[in-house]
């Protein structure tokens, strides 16, 4: 297997103009690679930029220097310098991102939240919904909730809807930010199953796991940020 994600000499710091221009460095000259089918854990004490790294790869944070090269069927794209529409395309076709928090949009039912990324890619609604329901079922979301907006769901239910959304569309690169944080044991195991399946299907995974045991089950190696 070869790398599908290459992080080269990546540097990131925040400048807070509202607080006397204080500069907060995150990391400097970071290098890493992730291959298709492998899961790599990002480790390090809190505040060292584990989530920031995922956000940089997703394009939400802007790097100060370096490159984040992502392989897709159009070749390599550097997320750091890519035009917004190219990043949007990568997010549609290549990079999936699962956080512990679901950004709820009023009135959109749970099954549509999960089906949306598939439909954005041109999969017909019926097919997308079918897969969405399969995943919601696996993640123990009761069927009676599928037609409701996750607005009123519990934190754990919202998190599982978000996980379903992330895994439904078979992204070649998956970024997981503490996907199991507030789940019970049964649901944690379901998520770990999904991670293993995604790896089996060739997805490259970059993940932050709080729990060391889970990290060991899910990931084959790690990148330390200390």
């Amino acid at each position: 297997m070869s790398a599908v994600l290459k992080i080269e000499n990546l540097s990131k710091s925040f400048v807070l103009h509202q607080q006397a221009g204080v500069r907060i460095p995150v990391f400097d000259c970071l290098n890493a690679e992730v291959e298709a089918g492998e899961a790599v854990a990002v480790t390090g004490p809190s505040g060292r930029g584990k989530s920031s790294l995922l956000k940089l790869v997703y394009g939400t944070y802007r790097a100060n220097a370096g490159a984040i090269n992502v392989l897709s069927n159009v070749g390599w794209t550097d997320v750091v310098t890519a035009a917004p529409r190219d990043v949007i395309e990568l997010r549609r076709d290549v990079i999936g991102y699962v956080t512990q928090f679901l950004r709820v949009i009023p009135r959109v039912p749970a099954e549509m939240v999960v089906a949306e990324p598939m439909m954005d890619r041109g999969i017909v609604q019926e097919q997308a919904l079918e897969r969405a329901r399969t995943l919601l079922e696996r993640l123990n979301i009761p069927e009676r909730l599928w037609h409701l907006s996750p607005m009123t769901f519990s934190g754990g239910e919202q998190q599982r809807v978000n996980i379903a959304r992330g895994f439904a569309a078979h992204f070649p690169i998956l970024l997981l930010d503490e996907p199991t944080a507030s789940l019970d044991t049964d649901n944690r195991n379901r998520v770990l199953e999904l991670v293993a399946e995604a790896r089996g299907q060739g997805s490259a995974i970059l993940a932050v796991f709080h729990d060391e045991a889970e990290r060991r089950i899910a990931c084959s190696r790690s990148i330390g940020l200390d």
């Binding site: 925040f14 400048v15 807070l16 103009h17 509202q18 956000k55 394009g59 939400t60 944070y61 917004p84």
Partner: peptide, 18 residues
């Protein structure tokens, strides 16, 4: 200018941060 989540989560200009 940039992606909406970039501007909202990692604003660069002093005014945008404000």
């Amino acid at each position: 200018q940039g992606l909406t989540d970039q501007i909202l989560e990692d604003p660069q200009a002093p005014y945008t941060q404000l």
